[in-house]
């Protein structure tokens, strides 16, 4: 077999190390692949000098992307959303998500990114359900902030909670019939308390 030479300086002294590389995806988990790393002692160049790892790494990324999509779909189902509901509000063809979930078709890159957003911010489904109305989206955002803040009682006293719910009510001028209503009780109580 012809001995490889360094593409940078032409030295024949290059050495090859096979390394295990862990590729991680926050939502898709991780995969370990074997890669070739060449080093040239003459010019110091180190890396995949002959483009041998590109396909292996790309395959791992695609695989993790598919796992991330499946995990996100499972998460949304566990949250109580039906796939047909998600497909409807996002304008996807019916059964698209089912096909991605069972591996019948591969999810597109933007599709996976959308699912990543939905797993982190499931409330985006409410925004879509309300036809991307900006005022309602603000209301949903503030409700979510309140939801999160309630979990940290030490920074959110009962009095400041009331003020906050009032602020939501006053600052977002939306048609109440259209708005999401998960905080209506708290808002009503706060108004009565005033």
């Amino acid at each position: 077999m012809k001995k490889k030479s360094c593409p940078v300086c032409g030295s024949k002294e290059i050495s090859l190390k096979k390394k295990k590389k862990v590729i991680k995806d926050r939502l898709g988990g991780e995969e370990t692949v074997s890669v070739n790393i060449y080093s040239c002692p003459v010019c110091g160049t180190t890396g995949d000098l002959f483009k041998e790892n590109v396909q292996v790494i790309r395959k791992a990324y695609l695989s993790l992307n598919e796992k991330a999509a499946k995990n996100s779909i499972d998460f949304l189902i566990k949250q109580g959303h039906s796939l047909s509901f998600i497909e409807r509000v996002l304008g996807l063809s019916q059964r698209t998500l089912t096909k991605w979930k069972i591996g019948a078709t591969k999810p597109s890159a933007p599709g996976v990114t959308l699912l990543r957003f939905l797993e982190i911010f499931p409330k985006l489904l409410d925004v879509a359900e309300n036809n991307f109305d900006k005022d309602i989206a603000k209301m949903i955002l503030l409700e979510e902030v309140a939801n999160q803040a309630v979990e940290y009682d030490e920074i959110f006293t009962a009095a400041s909670k009331d003020e906050f719910f009032l602020y939501i009510k006053k600052s977002v001028k939306v048609n109440k019939n259209k708005s999401s209503n998960c905080f209506d009780n708290e808002i009503q109580l706060a108004i009565e308390a005033q």
Binding site: P7, V8, I23, I37, T45, T46, G47, D48, L49, K51, N53, V54, I57, R58, Y61
Partner: peptide, 25 residues
């Protein structure tokens, strides 16, 4: 596809961490 461009190992790893992109991407 960048045949004449080598990406050093550390640079490739940093690019993956930063951009989630493999060398070719």
């Amino acid at each position: 596809k960048g045949k004449k461009v080598n990406v050093w190992e550390n640079a490739a790893e940093d690019a993956e961490r930063l951009f989630r992109k493999d060398e070719e991407a």
